[in-house]
Amino acid sequence: MSDSSGLYVVVLAGGISHERDVSLRSGRRVADALVAAGHRVVLRDPDAGLLPFLVEERPDVVFPALHGSSGEDGSLLGLLDAIGIPTVGSSAAAARRAWSKPVASSLLGASGASVPESIVLSHESFRELGAAGVLRVVRDALPGDLVVKPAMGGSAQGVGIVTDPNDLPRAMVDAFTYSDVVVIERRIVGTEIAVGVIDTGDGPVALTPVEIEPTTGIYSFQARYNAGETTFYAPSRLDTAAIETVAAAAIHAHLTLGLRDLSRVDFIVDGAGVPWFLEANVLPGLTETSLVPLAIDASGTDAATTYSGLVQAALARAGRNSKV
C-alpha cells in the first residue's frame, strides 16, 4: 500500500515478446516520471513471481509498459482485473480488439472510418490453398503497391512494403515469422501521422498529432527506436483542417474500440486530407524516441504530470480515494 509520499505503483516492463528491449526502455521512462511526480515505484518483469508478488504486496496501481503479446493481447490485463489490482490502460476485452489488426480495422470500417482495402490470410490457408494460387489472387485483387504485416504485433516488426509483385512472397514469409495471420493491404500514399489519446477521467483528449518522416522513407523498427533515423514534427506540418480531422479520427477510433486511459492511433493522411486508419495501440511505446512522449511535450505538459494523472484515474475507477 502507499505511504504519505504518494501512491505505490508497480510498473511492468520486459516480458518475452519480440519487443522486450523496447518495453524495458518504456518501463524505465515511466518509472522515472512517476518517481518525479512523488510516487513510490517498483519496476517488475512479468515473470512467474509476478502474480504472487502482487497478491502479497497489493500496490495501489499497476502501470503496464509492456509491448507485444505479453502486454497487449489482454491476457495479463484480464488476470490483473481478476485479482482486483487497479491498472492503467484498457480492459482485456478492448485490448483484444485492438491487438488484432483485422478486428480493429473491421470495427473501424463498419463505423464509417476510412480503412485500406485488405485481404487477411492465415498461414494454414496459405499452405493448403497453395502459395502460387493465393498470391495470384492477391495481386489481381489488390493491384499496385502493398503493405504486408502481421495481424498481431507492433513496432513494425515483420512489416514489408511491396512495390514489385515479385517481392510479395518474401514479404509474406517475413510477416508469417511474427504471426500466424497476415494482413495484405493496399498501400495508402500520404503523410504518416500518430495521435496519442489521453483520458485522465474527463473524457479522451487527442494530443498534438505527430508527423513521421523516416530518412529511408519507411518507418521501420530501426527508424522507430534509433535516434536520428526519423524526423518528427509536432505539431504536424499538415494544415489546420487536416490536423483537426485526424485528431477527431483518433478519438473516434479510441471510443469505437472501447479503449481507455491511453492509446496511440496511427494513420496515413492522403493528399485530400482523409485519414486512413492503420492500427491502434493500447500500450504504445514510451521510450525516449517514442511518439506519445513527444506528443505529450508538444501538448504543453510533461510525462510526470500525464502518467501521474493516469495512475490517479485508474485508482479512481477502482473506487478508491486518491492519496496525492
Score class of each variant (00 low, 15 high):
residue 204 P to R: 14
residue 150 P to R: 05
residue 260 R to W: 01
residue 64 P to Y: 04
residue 294 L to Y: 01
residue 41 V to G: 08
residue 221 F to N: 14
residue 31 A to F: 08
residue 198 I to Q: 00
residue 175 A to V: 13
residue 34 L to F: 05
residue 262 L to G: 02
residue 121 L to M: 10
residue 234 A to I: 02
residue 211 E to P: 01
residue 225 Y to G: 13
residue 194 A to T: 11
residue 91 S to K: 03
residue 151 A to P: 00
residue 43 L to W: 08
residue 226 N to F: 10
residue 46 P to L: 04
residue 8 Y to S: 13
residue 164 D to C: 02
residue 216 T to G: 04
residue 196 G to L: 06
residue 67 H to W: 04
residue 11 V to S: 07
residue 209 P to I: 10
residue 227 A to F: 11
residue 97 R to Q: 02
residue 37 A to F: 09
residue 154 G to V: 09
residue 184 I to C: 04
residue 276 W to E: 11
residue 304 A to C: 13
residue 20 R to N: 10
residue 228 G to H: 03
residue 95 A to P: 03
residue 85 I to Y: 01
residue 169 P to Y: 07
residue 62 V to Y: 09
residue 34 L to M: 06
residue 160 G to R: 14
residue 248 A to K: 14
residue 138 V to S: 02
residue 225 Y to K: 09
residue 279 E to D: 13
residue 258 G to K: 11
residue 180 D to E: 15
residue 214 P to D: 05
residue 12 L to D: 10
residue 314 A to W: 07
residue 254 H to M: 07
residue 223 A to Q: 03
residue 299 S to D: 09
residue 128 E to V: 14
residue 201 G to L: 01
residue 316 A to K: 12
residue 188 I to M: 14
residue 321 N to D: 15
residue 94 A to K: 10
residue 119 I to T: 08
residue 286 L to T: 04
residue 232 F to N: 09
residue 114 S to K: 05
residue 64 P to D: 09
residue 172 M to G: 11
residue 53 F to Y: 15
residue 139 R to P: 03
residue 57 E to D: 12
residue 320 R to Q: 15
residue 196 G to H: 08
residue 27 G to Q: 11
residue 276 W to N: 01
residue 302 D to C: 07
residue 105 S to W: 02
residue 78 G to L: 01
residue 158 G to V: 02
residue 3 D to M: 13
residue 61 V to H: 11
residue 172 M to Q: 07
residue 267 F to K: 06
residue 319 G to M: 03
residue 3 D to Q: 14
residue 266 D to M: 05
residue 16 I to K: 12
residue 86 P to V: 00
